[in-house]
Simulated assay, not measured.
Amino acid sequence: MENTRSGLELGSVIVGVDGSEPARRAALWASDEAARRRRPLHIVYGSDIDGRLLYHSAEDLERVRAAGRELLEGTAEAVQNRHPALSVTREFSRSAPAMSLRRAAADGGTLVVGNRGLGGFQSLMVGSTGLKVAAEARTPVIVVRGMENEAGKGVVLAAVRDERDLDCVRHAARAAELRKASLRLLHVRNVLQSVGSVARTLGDGHELTLTAVAEEIRDEYPSLTVTADTDESVSVASVLVEASRHADLLVMGGRRSPGPIGRTLGRATHSLVHHAHCPVELIPQHSDEPRSEAS
């Protein structure tokens, strides 16, 4: 399905499974998303067999293979029961989970991960695989959060920092259109970053930027109800987390920054994938240039 107005094309949906309950929920959510898009669903199990060769016996590795294939079959059966007409494919990968998912999405599409994996640290709100995928992927990534079978709110929320988020907002608009939902644009000014500045006194242009983005989206999606709000706080993330209570999906530019051990998520982005009350979609914005986390 292609949006000819902005050239935005939503591809297939790729979801990772590992046997955990959050991954099961993510697979079912991903099947709903694939059905909405009328695109295939690809289910991936990253066994990391290649990384285990030196430390496990052949019998252990065969058990891993058998368990992985059984998990893939069971997940595929569950989503086919939910969406009988959905095209579903499965992939057993020998690589680690994060690498397996990135490779599966190399030709485009959207990656979906659960908010927690099989690790023993239950206090971690997002598993290490989910964070690695979110930080390094060059395709959209959705971290499935919120309650299972929760009633829809009829709203897609888009976090807007500046005009460079227009592509992110287009993704949000397409998601809202598919859900027959409204679109809410929200810009949050970090008051601590504006204290004492002349730009703060002059209104710093953010209201004008938000209005311009909203008008562009209304032109491209004339049948979509679009609202635009500005808020200010000492914590951008806390405002967005609270706003996510009233949304079915939060879409934001997933800024990644280079670090000593690879790319990492920006502070606000990191907080949202840990604490939002609905699924969070990160639209990749890879840049080595510094950029404010204020939304």
Score class of each variant (00 low, 15 high):
residue 202 L to D: 12
residue 203 G to D: 14
residue 192 L to H: 09
residue 233 S to N: 10
residue 165 D to V: 06
residue 231 D to R: 15
residue 183 L to E: 01
residue 191 V to I: 15
residue 180 K to H: 11
residue 207 E to P: 00
residue 189 R to I: 15
residue 203 G to E: 14
residue 154 G to Q: 06
residue 140 P to F: 03
residue 193 Q to Y: 15
residue 194 S to K: 05
residue 146 G to K: 05
residue 234 V to Y: 06
residue 185 L to M: 10
residue 231 D to Q: 12
residue 192 L to K: 09
residue 156 V to I: 15
residue 174 R to W: 03
residue 205 G to Q: 05
residue 159 A to E: 03
residue 143 V to W: 04
residue 159 A to V: 01
residue 237 A to E: 06
residue 214 A to R: 02
residue 158 A to Y: 08
residue 161 R to S: 10
residue 145 R to A: 00
residue 172 A to K: 00
residue 176 A to V: 01
residue 193 Q to G: 09
residue 197 S to R: 14
residue 152 G to C: 05
residue 231 D to G: 03
residue 165 D to H: 13
residue 176 A to I: 00
residue 214 A to G: 11
residue 146 G to V: 08
residue 148 E to M: 12
residue 156 V to A: 08
residue 160 V to E: 13
residue 198 V to H: 09
residue 206 H to N: 07
residue 230 T to L: 12
residue 201 T to Y: 07
residue 224 L to S: 04
residue 171 H to A: 01
residue 212 A to M: 02
residue 132 K to L: 09
residue 238 S to E: 15
residue 240 L to V: 01
residue 174 R to Y: 03
residue 227 T to H: 10
residue 213 V to A: 00
residue 214 A to D: 04
residue 152 G to T: 11
residue 198 V to Y: 11
residue 150 E to I: 07
residue 229 D to S: 13
residue 137 A to W: 13
residue 192 L to W: 08
residue 232 E to Q: 14
residue 137 A to F: 07
residue 163 E to Y: 00
residue 226 V to H: 13
residue 157 L to V: 01
residue 159 A to L: 02
residue 137 A to C: 11
residue 157 L to R: 03
residue 132 K to Q: 14
residue 191 V to L: 11
residue 232 E to F: 10
residue 204 D to R: 06
residue 184 R to Y: 08
residue 138 R to G: 12
residue 206 H to T: 10
residue 153 K to M: 11
residue 205 G to S: 06
residue 177 E to N: 06
residue 226 V to M: 15
residue 195 V to E: 14
residue 229 D to T: 12
residue 143 V to L: 05
residue 183 L to I: 04
residue 186 L to K: 11
